[in-house]
Design a protein around this nucleic acid. Structure first.
Lengths: 420, 420
DNA sequence: CCATTTCGTTCCCTCCCCGAACAAATAGAC
DNA sequence: GTCTATTTGTTCGGGGAGGGAACGAAATGG
């Protein structure tokens, strides 16, 4: 799992953008390209970004002076040229900053510490015996997790450049406000500001579904893609959309809500109170709801949901037709939901991302056939469907990416406001 | 109807963008702002766009030299200031170019001629007795329509700057290719190139649903909005999405396809052959299908669909409960479809746009209540819902906007490529 | 030892745009 | 009528971003 996260070698992260892009400052483009490509020569930066060599020298010089980049030997094998002056590698200075990424939950929060090059330094998991939703208590948890991780690697909060926090629910990234979350009491909390004051370090907040997209964009299968969609199925169904190397947060800055689009008007009851939501056919509780019947369980058998689903999968694998039909139905509805995403966004890549073993029940071939039957034929083939199961740290990585992008924004003096 | 299109006075069109935007050349921003605002002083351009007065003088001077802008008296009442040097108005030079916009159909094509300021010069309607789908015949129709309009205003093809053509179906705007259309035989036609050669004038092509979005963005209710969604219900259900003052064409450049998203898995049969598409509950043929039963008609009574629906509306209005139930059902499904758009794109404005009298059956209040029940509550109220019924020239206006934006792109030396 | 090749730097130039100073054209105050 | 306040528009200098060419640097191959 962890090896999967940085399979192309260590210390590379972030969206990989090549080609000229007149809309962003060149200095930022160069930095992003170096971070995304690892040790790379100035000449290659110039070629790949379509920039004159002189400009690259000047700007990288400034970046090195401001201690963001450093020179680092480029692997001689990668330098395909034999003749000529050997290239000097450029890389992000890992020790320039360290950041923390925290995935907040009511019972089971996770966190990681990354260096500036995206390398994982340590991680942590916090389980609470009882659900915790008090804002103060959650802030205390975050602070304690950050401090514990810093202590583990012998650093202090002074060394910390930023913290990214993923909060489930409706989160407005640009303002840092949490409109509503099942992991936090109250409504419309100015979470980023409060947390920044509490920790003493800039805090960025985002929706957990957007974090998955960010994780794929920075560390995962979407790094070399300008456009892709990510769908997760966990306690709920989430989606993230990346357009032009950026996470699409909707016109109002919250983000797409796939889980509650209607695939069956007046259909199955969803925990949101409405009927026919996609989530009502796919999420943990929806499967569990049917599993109770299929496995002849009593409601009193309050088996934890994950184990229940495991049992159902085992039953389906060993030929239990009722169990199989439950998963068939889930897949049928998933196909409809994914086809909606394809019809509306037309992504060239579709990633099913999640923690571990979330998609064991899924037969990709069957899913693709069903999706084909649900998707309008615009002459183009369906986008490739990739299943990506990370470890538990998926969201924490996304939160770390959030923190890293916050740092580069402030450090490279970029004020990127979302248009209202 | 027509008055509605340019209600703020004549000769203004195009997206109205205020505030600084570092990603676009200043010259283009100024031009767009002047076109969108009508006669406006240099000082106001500088204030509204956040540009220094000196730059505005220099750049408008260049635009006047290249005959794109001209000075024009600004209405004294609009100049709220009494004291001070009177402002000199800037406006688009209407005679700089004329463009044609054509909405292609198999039976009933429409077209308009616009001057460079977006003022309608003339319009035309072409009905053919038999459905016409041959590419050559359609090109001949377009050419004839353009020539007829030019003749009407005493101009020739030499005066024409560009032609915009709206083609139903799957159209790739950037490449000008038509992947598939029910109005054209064949597949994957390089329509823009062929038409350009045939007419001898640059031709831009787009999907008819995107044209509606473009029409609203340039001439309609969306001119002052950065983000909004447009939904049309005609022979099919189409949608257009405007993000950041630009028509969103999806990651692959075709555009969102709302009509065939599934609102009811395995539901009503759609003419696309699939089941449960939104269109199968809303489009002309879907209503007509039910109307046959409701009005006790025989299939032999091959009444034209529009008249049939008119009759059904009359019946519903006069208390026919079966007829009412048909429209209730359509509204219910429309609410689900619109809620999907809101869940995924979160537009701050939703426009229901169409030709004439398309939404008579719609009770907006009821629709909003049903949408509320279908939309996940993210703490924000539903976006305002605006119904905009144009005349027949809706799509032709969109095609005209397409031609105008093509001209400004080439004329102002901008090469805006969509990212693949 | 020299030619070749590739990499990185330096210097100059152009383009875009801002800011300040200035000229122009009005209304109102005296 | 004259002067002042006020707003508009233009001119000019300057700074920052980035391109292009020339040059120095560091290797390999003959």
């Amino acid at each position: 799992m962890a090896a999967d996260i940085a399979e192309e070698g260590d210390s590379v992260c972030g969206p990989l953008i090549v080609g000229p892009d007149p809309s962003r400052p060149l200095k930022l483009q160069i930095f992003d390209y170096v971070r995304a490509s690892g040790p790379v020569s100035r000449a290659r930066v110039a070629r790949d970004l379509g920039i004159s060599p002189g400009t690259v020298s000047t700007l990288t010089g400034a970046l090195i002076d401001s201690m963001l980049l450093c020179e680092s030997p480029v692997s001689r094998s990668a330098a395909n040229s034999i003749r000529g002056r050997p290239p000097v590698g450029l890389a992000v200075r890992p020790e320039a900053f360290i950041v923390a990424g925290i995935k907040l939950s009511s019972r089971d929060s996770t966190g990681i510490l990354l260096d500036f090059a995206g390398q994982q330094l340590t991680s942590i998991r916090h389980r609470s015996s009882a659900p915790q939703t008090d804002v103060d208590a959650q802030l205390a948890t975050i602070t304690a997790m950050v401090d514990k991780m810093l202590c583990d690697v012998g650093r202090t909060r002074r060394d910390l450049g930023a913290v990214g926090v993923g909060v489930p629910g409706f989160v407005h990234h640009a303002s840092g406000r949490v409109h509503w979350s099942w992991a936090l009491d109250g409504r419309d909390i100015d979470f980023a500001r409060i947390a920044t004051e509490r920790i003493g370090v800039p805090v960025a907040v985002d929706n957990d579904a957007n974090l998955v997209a960010l994780a794929e964009l920075w560390f995962g299968k979407g790094r070399d893609r300008a456009n892709f969609a990510v769908v997760t199925i966990e306690q709920g169904v989430g989606m993230g959309m990346v357009l032009d190397h950026r996470v699409f947060r909707g016109a109002n800055g919250v983000g797409p809500e796939l889980g509650h689009t209607k695939v069956q008007i007046d259909g199955a009851l969803c925990r949101c109170g409405q009927r026919g939501c996609l989530e009502a056919y796919l999420a943990d509780y929806a499967i569990a709801r049917e599993a109770y019947a299929a496995l002849n369980l009593q409601i009193e058998d309050t088996q934890p949901v994950p184990e229940l689903i495991d049992a159902l999968q085992t039953a389906a694998a060993s030929g239990n037709e009722v169990a199989q039909s439950i998963f068939d139905r889930a897949r049928h509805h998933l196909a409809a939901g994914l086809s909606t995403v394809i019809n509306l966004f037309d992504p060239p890549l579709l990633i099913l991302s999640g923690g571990q073993r979330r998609f064991d029940w899924l037969n990709t071939q069957d899913l693709l056939v069903e999706m084909q039957a649900f998707t309008i034929d615009s002459g183009q083939p369906l986008p490739p469907l990739v299943i990506h199961e990370w470890g538990d740290l998926l969201w924490a990585y996304g939160a770390g990416a959030l923190a890293l992008s916050r740092i580069t924004e402030t450090e490279l003096g970029l004020v990127r406001e979302d248009v209202a």
